[in-house]
Structures are given as C-alpha cells and as structure tokens.
Design a protein around this nucleic acid. Sequence first.
DNA 1: CTCCAGGGATCAG
DNA 2: CTGATCCATGGA
Length: 292
Amino acid sequence: MKYTHRDNNIILTDIPDFNLAQTIECGQCFHFIRKDLPEEDDSRSEYTLAAFGRGLRVAQDGDTFTFYDTKAEDFEKLWIPYFDLDRDYGMIKDFIIERNPELREIVEKNAGIRLLNQDFFETLLSFIISQNNRIPQIKKVVADISATWGRKVGDDLYSFPEPGELEGVCAADFKEKKTGFRAAYLCDAVSKVLSGEISGEELKRLELDECEKKLCEIKGVGPKVANCIMLFSLGKREAFPIDVWMKRVLEQVYFGGKEKSKPELAAFAKDKYGEYGGYAQQYLFAYAREEL
DNA sequence: CTCCAGGGATCAG
DNA sequence: CTGATCCATGGA
C-alpha cells in the first residue's frame, strides 16, 4: 500500500476499485455523516465516521483519498483493514463476472464498493436495530446510542459504546432511544456478550453454518441479521444476507419476477456464488436500491 | 387514514 | 417445512 504523509494527513492515490461514497453508503454501515458539499460534484465526497472507538474524517477527490489527522500507524492498523484496502477487488469482480455474466452491468455500476471490516459488537447491535426499520432511522438511533453511552471522538461524533459501557443499561433505557420492540433484543445481545456466551473472536473461528446458528441464539437475530454480522464484521465473505431488496433483485434477475421464499433463495445463492456470495450480494443490493 | 421499513418471535396448520 | 400476525416508530 503506497501512501504519503503530509500535514498530519494520509494521502492515498493509486488505489483501484475504491469509491468512498459507494462504500460508505451501500447500506453496510450506519455510523457516519456525509458532508454537504456545494454543488453536485460527483468527483468529490467527504465523510466523518466512527469505528473502533475512533473518529475519522476522510474525503475522496477523483482518485485521491485524504485521511485527515491520521497517523501512519492508525492508518495501517485501523483504516486499511476497515476499508479492506489490501484486497484485490479487480480479481474478485472478474471472477464473479466470468462465472455470472448476467451480473456484469450490476457489478460495474457499483464497482467501487469495498466490504468494510467493522467492529463485531457495533455491527451486532446495529443490525438488530436495522430489522424492520429504515436506514435514516437506524442511523439516528446508532448516533443517539453513541452520544449517550459512547465517547466524543469528533465534532458531533461519538464512538459506539463498548460492551462494558452498556453494562446496567436496561430495556427501558434503550426504548428511550426509539428502538421500539428491539429494546429487549439489544439487552439480550449486550448481556450475552458481557457474559462471554457470545464472543466475536470465537465466532470468527466457526464455520459459516455453525456461526449463524450461534448468532441466532441471540434474541432478535435471525438469518438475515446473522449473515450481515458475519459478512460485515466476522470476515465471512461467503455470507449472503437476504432482505426484501435481495429477494426482489434475485427474483427479477433469475426467476422472471416470480416469487421465491428466502430459504429457497439462500440455497440458490450459495450454489451460484459460493465463497464470493458476500461480494455479489453487496453489488446486487446496491443495484436493487438504485434501480428497483 | 393506511402502508411499509436491509426481520424475527410466536403460533397455527 | 410454510404462512399469518404482531411487534414500535416514523415518514410517505
């Protein structure tokens, strides 16, 4: 990874297959603020985001990425893994398109997506919150929970609380954050993590099916949420979350619009995309939200 | 007013 | 296994 260090900023060029806006706004993370930029300038985008107890201001201008106020050590240890910058997405996309030519346009429309490697605990709670909810509302709840129990890590930006910071927080407290019926689920998740019954490190070592099964022991975690957690925070890139959008796009692309059940589609996707399921899923999801 | 949101728990058949 | 209903909350 080649980059330069200037005025406390990390400047990154020559990084292919990476678009900041596509990566941050494709529905895999909720803990960010997009900076309003004058005019609709597609070539520039800027965000502040929180991850792993840190805040980050980052911008893309053409093929130049700027990580503001970032030390080389943090860039190497935090942000390269977080943005998955060490991975060869050109190879991944070629592989997907070669085996699934019907996905060519869909992949190329969002060719700059990278799958983030997020914190397990934050991803677990965030995707419990996501169930039967809308992205703006999810973002609001995540920001509110962070502002209440996390630490200040930037202007109007707070880290997502660690498990220990939520010790003693009960369902009534979560309800005040507009989590609705998910409040009890969040309590169960927090208590299982605090007790050690659920551990991100242990889950990483499990096979996909075993990992999903274990995650589904948490109240409010079903197949879709479990697969999001595995894909976005446990490094399981063969995971394949199926929500209403994935259902729609798969039915449209492969079944002429005919209805299929989610378990049916899950088996279909596993057979079709195999270990690249997670990547295919994210290109399909972004396409579905834009075009369907 | 109704309908629905990156679903899941629960219960019926 | 499959399907129906309910779950809080907010926006269209």
